[in-house]
Nucleic acid binder design. Structure first.
Lengths: 230, 230
DNA sequence: AAACTATATTTGGTTGACCAATTATTGGTT
DNA sequence: AACCAATAATTGGTCAACCAAATATAGTTT
């Protein structure tokens, strides 16, 4: 009998507050550049504590939707409406990502990162990459699993490419990659040898300053991983 | 005489706290899966208020580095160390992005988005894109500036591509694009006609389901914008 | 001794009051 | 009337005390 009852979705108060503020902005009541009502007023109007309003504003600030000026007010930034369009309810933070999109996007970013690394790597970058690769191999042979070290190597590649934005984006999706990989148990002993070789291939292409080769090596590596998962 | 004095970089307390917690994690004192010391202890040890520790933990939670369990404790997630490597001091949030990296990365994402849109667009997507384009043109001809509407059109393209992660990433860098464009005054009357035509080209390629053409049209469009800036 | 229950402690969350910087208002001076 | 300085009100930031849930501890029973 009890299993007929639907689970009640308890909604986080701050999410409700966010959507209320969102309404204020997209309805045009508060236009970009203007100030939001003060925290106290918002709290009073909505009948909640000021701290909760505060936390909601914090989140909005995090996404760059508003900008707070201490002792003055919080102004909504110009582009706010764009981000808000997507904020409908999926609290951003690329939650609930579908795996296909994730790996496809990763492939795109990683290939470019490898290409750029081949073009712009310095001697110091090569040392860093080599060290990261060593750490990866040691950890893998030792404990059989080295997801983090693996991805750290990839991050180092992005660093060598000298494109800060690309690196940031890779770091943003990395947590989700890790999560997916752990869930799907990517790591398998018989694959270790192969992935190590592939990593070395990538590094050598970068060392040779061969952008197309690096891109292709990365492509090979990731499609291998991809194939293994499916 | 006074201009000889260096500006003192006043560091935000919570950033210091973050780096301290970061030290705890990467030093291995608190391993992934384990609990962080309670907020009160951290506050006492560092000689700061609990609220500041609290805010630091909030930020770490945003980045997915820790996960708080109310009335129990805050555990560090497995992938935390990776993100922390890059968190050294540049407060993430792709602050202080260099413009070159930004436009280069945008080009990469937008081209792929256009390609995917040509492959996967539905009839409804075409309607949405057409509407977005209309809004852009109207706003541009009316007020002479339509940065937001411009980017909203691009976001719609990403949506039509059906790759959620790619869209999220585009939404992440969009605010910085807007900021840069406004600062550099991209919009200019004599360019309006051209950009409108280019937008229409992109849309028609997507409508024709021509992925290579869409990619090339997008490439053309963005390199034009890029050239105008420099 | 083991298992369970009741109590005490610890933990993150919440609240209301206070602080300093900013902004608005007021009164006076030129 | 215009400008300016002094004061009052407002605002986001900070803090210490309190709350309820989760956990650890002690006590009791079997």
């Amino acid at each position: 009998m009890l299993e007929n009852l639907d689970k009640i979705k308890i909604e986080d108060p701050v999410e409700i507050i966010i959507s209320q503020i969102r309404e204020l902005i997209i309805s045009g009541a508060v236009k970009p550049g203007e100030k939001l009502p003060p925290e106290r007023k918002l709290a009073e109007k909505m009948g909640v504590s000021r701290n909760q309003v505060r936390e909601a504003i914090n989140k909005l600030r995090f996404y760059g939707i508003v900008k707070v000026q201490p002792q003055s007010g919080t102004i909504v930034t110009g582009m706010g409406t764009i981000a808000l369009e997507g904020l409908i309810s999926d609290i951003l933070k690329l939650e609930q990502v579908d795996f296909k999109s994730l790996v496809a996007t990763r492939l795109l970013l990683e290939k470019e990162a490898a290409r750029l690394a081949a073009l712009h790597r310095t001697k110091d970058d090569l040392i860093q990459l080599s060290n990261a690769l060593d750490r990866y191999e040691n950890k893998l042979l030792e404990s059989g699993v080295a997801v983090e070290e693996d991805l750290l190597f990839h991050i180092k590649i992005a660093e060598a490419g000298k494109n800060t934005v690309l690196k940031s984006l890779m770091m943003i999706i990395t947590p989700d990659i890790v999560k997916s990989y752990i869930n799907l148990k990517v790591c398998d002993d018989k694959n270790n040898r192969k992935t190590i070789d592939e990593h070395r291939d990538i590094l050598s292409m970068i060392a040779d300053q061969n952008p197309e080769g690096a891109m292709e090596a990365m492509n090979q590596h990731l499609t291998d991983v991809q194939a293994f998962i499916q």
